[in-house]
């Protein structure tokens, strides 16, 4: 067992050692319920799918994931444990990946706990379970992208509130860039490829594609690249200003 699993284990256990995990999961489940049934019109749609459920995930993640990611490094900085951690024989990569994976697995657990919805839709009708699987995968990939952004921003500050707000803002930009509103604002004066690039950068574009059940390797790859990119940035930020 390498050191990154040791870090991962400690980190994941620390979620459950405090009320954080339970609060997060309960709120997440409540909100997904509210969004799906009230705002999403799950029943009114009359379709046996979970589109009403997945559709709101980007917005849900927008404020729930920063709450999870803000403590990743800020807390280590604040309490000084970063000095302890970084003088233990663990490579920087193991630390960054271990912590990130712990948070990512945690959102995965929260996501899996929405299984009653999946059971409901299967009870009510005959949904395309492949598409639902894809939806879950897409949602999880997207939460990873949110978390990797949060990890990097958390590494830059010892103030968790700042980490929360900045992460929410950056994630918001990543979500919004695929919105028609933003697209229209650029269309007309910006070059076509710029507009396309901005749209292509959006979480929404790629998430919607996957959530509709079209599991294109490029969409998955997009999230993987985003995650790796932000994690590398996390490592660079930590290395540059670990003692500040």
């Amino acid at each position: 067992m390498s050191n990154f699993t040791v870090v991962l284990k400690r980190e994941l256990a620390s979620y459950f050692a405090t009320p954080l995990a339970y609060v997060f999961i309960v709120i997440f489940l409540m909100l997904t319920g509210v969004f799906t049934f009230f705002l999403g019109g799950f029943f009114e749609n009359g379709q046996a799918d979970l589109w009403a459920f997945f559709n709101f995930h980007p917005w849900l993640y927008l404020f729930l994931v920063p709450a999870l990611s803000m403590r990743l490094w800020s807390e280590e900085r604040k309490s000084g444990t970063i000095e302890l951690l970084m003088t233990l024989p663990i490579s920087l990569r193991d630390m960054v990946v271990g912590k990130f994976l712990a948070a990512w697995l945690f959102t995965g657990i929260a996501l899996l706990l929405t299984f009653p919805l999946w059971m409901t839709v299967n009870y009510l009708g005959d949904p395309d379970n492949g598409a639902i699987m894809a939806g879950y995968l897409g949602s999880w990939m997207m939460s990873g992208a949110f978390l990797s952004i949060g990890s990097c921003i958390s590494a830059a500050t010892k103030n968790q509130v700042i980490a929360f707000i900045l992460t929410a803002v950056v994630c918001f930009l990543f979500v919004m860039s695929g919105f028609n509103l933003v697209q229209e604002w650029f269309t007309g004066w910006a070059l076509d490829w710029v507009v396309d690039a901005i749209a292509a950068l959006s979480f929404l574009t790629h998430f919607n594609a996957i959530a509709k059940g079209v599991l294109d390797l490029r969409d998955v790859l997009y999230f993987i690249v985003i995650i790796i990119g932000w994690l590398v940035a996390t490592g660079i930020v930590l290395d540059m200003k670990k003692a500040d």
Binding site: N3, V6, V7, R10, A13, S14, A17, T18, S79, G80, T81, E83, L84, T87, L88, P89, I90
Partner: peptide, 23 residues
């Protein structure tokens, strides 16, 4: 380190086991 930082939400037993595992 200065101020003896450690993970406040862990117990000494879990904390020491973590360090030993890393070691």
């Amino acid at each position: 380190p200065e101020g003896a930082p450690s993970y406040g939400d862990m117990t000494p037993l879990k904390f020491l086991r973590f360090i030993a595992e890393v070691r």
